[in-house]
Design a binder for these strands. Structure first.
Lengths: 217, 217
DNA sequence: ATAAATTTTTAGACTAGACTAAAAATAGTT
DNA sequence: AACTATTTTTAGTCTAGTCTAAAAATTTAT
């Protein structure tokens, strides 16, 4: 498996959104910042290798074999992110790019040992689940902060759009995984809200609250 | 810098043997398990980029810039080896291949943090020195076990040819970095020797003793 | 239902890096 | 000094992955 092949599989994994949905050539190309013609070429190649189910003009989705391969790459990506944050003290906004490289290191033994070294974590620093060796993920039911009623108390469980700037902003405010959030007020006209987070009162826009996953206590 | 370019620089680094010696196209090709014609192509390219001083039919050596780049790759390789052995409990014979991949990860910050995490080691698991950020290496004076006189007491400081099978053999015998070695007998006809290593008496061939570096106490 | 707009695929070209085979330069031998 | 043997370089081909431009299929709109 080449690096490019791995990146296509991973993109399909993320785009199919656990729904087994068909992904269009353009979607895939956009995600990988490439051209649709390149995506077509690769899809045909991956179809040949039985990693992808692809029908001309209809789109593509991962085969079970392809899904397994993809989940292994995601597993590696997220384990390395944990390593970078927990062991090397990187900020959660700095690790994605480096993990993009580390995820392609080929050594099954390394993955297992790294997993053990990290204490077999189940989520990465952004709250995304880490697939196990077989590709299975434990999905924790989480809701958007935006949907929580006033007075409700929740715990921050994940970040939807792990954009680096957004993550930097959050950590500047002291917002991190596991923070306790209580919704104090919700403005009906712009869906902004006032929250109490780890004791501190904060005013939060709709953009923010729709990108934060919480778990009800 | 592509992966191939990095591998050529690294090969030149190892072949020039700290002597700043000219390396021939064939030597380089052999080291990289490729053909001389491919090496020529790459040398011309690296010369264009001022990373290598190359004159047709004469051979090549690293420029100061190229040497710096190469030493950074070697630094990364050896730091990752320490990580794999010290933190993930790999055997010293298992780490070279994985480090060959990890050495190409691009992130200066990562290297610094890894270095610190590992306690700024000065040698890798085989006793080879780890270059610092500027490419400088601390060379410890070490001699071959084969050259030690009878009765002399030494400490094992490094392995010359870090071949996986050889390393496996050594660790099976309980031979490791830091082991105390006393030469008990030397046979003049085949240069084999009897040694005492960490209390245990061992018979050792010339091949072995010429691949082990020791430091006199 | 047919025309227009969009999406997707094909065809052909490019680059990096490798290869083979042939040509050129260097080194070794007499 | 000249002739052979070896090494090195050049020339041309191949593959993976990308691209652009054009053709084909599909979707949308009238």
């Amino acid at each position: 498996m080449t690096r490019a092949e791995e990146n296509y599989l991973k993109a399909l994994y993320h785009l199919s959104d656990h729904n087994d949905a068909m992904v269009s050539t353009t979607e895939l190309a956009d995600r990988l910042e490439t051209k649709p013609s390149s995506a077509t070429d690769m899809l045909q190649k991956l179809h040949e290798k039985s990693l992808v189910a692809y029908t001309k003009y209809k789109g593509a989705k991962l085969s079970s074999e392809g899904r397994k391969k993809a989940s292994q790459i995601v597993r590696k990506h997220r384990l390395w992110e944990v390593f970078l944050v927990d062991k090397l003290n990187f900020g959660w906004e700095e690790v994605h790019e480096i993990a993009e490289q580390l995820e392609h290191i080929k050594s099954p033994e390394l993955v297992e040992r790294l997993d053990e070294f990290l204490g077999c974590p189940t989520t990465d620093p952004h709250g995304d689940p880490i697939p196990d060796q077989k590709g299975h993920v434990v999905t924790i039911s989480k809701s958007l902060l935006a949907d929580q009623p006033v007075e409700s108390s929740t715990i921050l469980m994940g970040i939807k759009d792990s954009d680096a700037d957004f993550l930097t902003y959050l950590s500047q405010k002291g917002i991190k995984l596991g923070s306790c959030i209580t919704v104090l007020e919700k403005e009906p006209f712009d869906q902004s809200m006032t929250i109490e987070i780890d004791g501190q009162t904060l005013f939060i826009s709709k953009t923010l609250s729709t990108n934060i996953y919480v778990q009800t206590l």
